[in-house]
Amino acid sequence: MDVFMKGLSKAKEGVVAAAEKTKQGVAEAAGKTKEGVLYVGSKTKEGVVHGVATVAEKTKEQVTNVGGAVVTGVTAVAQKTVEGAGSIAAATGFVKKDQLGKNEEGAPQEGILEDMPVDPDNEAYEMPSEEGYQDYEPEA
């Protein structure tokens, strides 16, 4: 019985440690998101679009440190934060509304985080759909 109880105690310690790591990862992701939003706020009209992409990228980098179902929630929060940063930029006159959601080359930025393969159960990952990809044929 002692062996059984000791095993359960060790398992509990492992769960607590994993929860603490997840909590730490979420806190880091939130900190990076805040950094990115402050970065966007300090940019001029020309830099705002690039700044919004930076927020998304920093958040995406930190999301990889967070495991399990938390990833889905962090990704949703990050996307809403990026959308909010863009709205703030438009409201303050840093950028025109028609410039939001495009990178410096004018290509749409939507789907940055949505296409990231995420499995809350950590069982399997699927690649994003290939609808947006084109076949590449090298020139002879």
Rank of each mutant, 00 (worst) to 15 (best):
A76R: 10
D135K: 05
G51S: 03
L38P: 00
V66G: 02
L8D: 00
L8W: 11
K10L: 14
V82M: 11
G36Q: 14
K43W: 14
D121C: 08
V16P: 00
Y133W: 06
Y125E: 05
V66N: 02
V55H: 01
V71L: 10
E139T: 03
G93M: 03
G14V: 14
V66P: 01
G73D: 02
E130H: 09
V55M: 10
Y125A: 03
D135V: 08
L113V: 15
V52Q: 01
D2P: 01
L113H: 11
G67K: 05
E137I: 03
T64A: 08
L8F: 01
K6H: 02
E130C: 09
K80H: 08
T92N: 06
E139C: 02
Q99R: 06
E35I: 14
V66W: 15
A11C: 15
E61S: 06
M1H: 00
S42P: 01
G132T: 14
S42M: 12
G67L: 12
Y133Q: 08
E20P: 00
G73V: 14
P138G: 13
Y133P: 11
E110T: 12
V48W: 15
G51P: 01
K60V: 09
E126N: 11
D2L: 14
Q62R: 12
F4A: 00
A56Q: 06
N103E: 06
V48Y: 12
P117S: 05
K12D: 00
A124Q: 04
K58T: 07
G14I: 15
P138L: 06
K12C: 13
E105P: 04
F4W: 04
V49Q: 10
G106W: 13
G84A: 14
K34D: 00
V95R: 08
A85I: 13
Y39T: 06
S42G: 07
D135L: 10
A76N: 11
K6S: 02
M5K: 09
V40M: 11
G14L: 13
E57C: 04
A85W: 14
I88A: 04
A53T: 04
T59M: 03
Q134S: 09
L100R: 11
E114P: 09
K23R: 11
K96A: 11
Q62D: 01
L8C: 01
V55Q: 01
Y136C: 07
H50I: 03
V77M: 13
V118A: 11
G36S: 14
V37C: 07
E20T: 07
K23G: 01
K43N: 02
K60H: 04
T72V: 07
E130R: 05
V15N: 00
G41D: 00
Q109K: 15
T64M: 06
D135Q: 09
T44D: 00
E137Q: 06
Y39D: 01
G93Q: 04
A17C: 07
D115A: 12
E130L: 10
K23I: 02
M1Q: 00
K21Y: 12
E131M: 02
I112S: 13
G106T: 07
K43D: 00
D98G: 13
E130T: 06
V15R: 00
V37Q: 00
V70T: 02
A53I: 12
P128E: 07
E137S: 09
V16H: 07
V63I: 12
E83Q: 10
A78H: 04
Q134T: 03
V118F: 11
T59F: 15
S9R: 13
D135N: 13
S129V: 07
K43V: 13
E61V: 07
V70P: 01
K23V: 05
A90K: 08
V48I: 12
G7M: 06
K23N: 01
N122S: 08
P138N: 04
G31D: 07
N103T: 08
E123H: 09
E46W: 04
Q62A: 07
A89P: 03
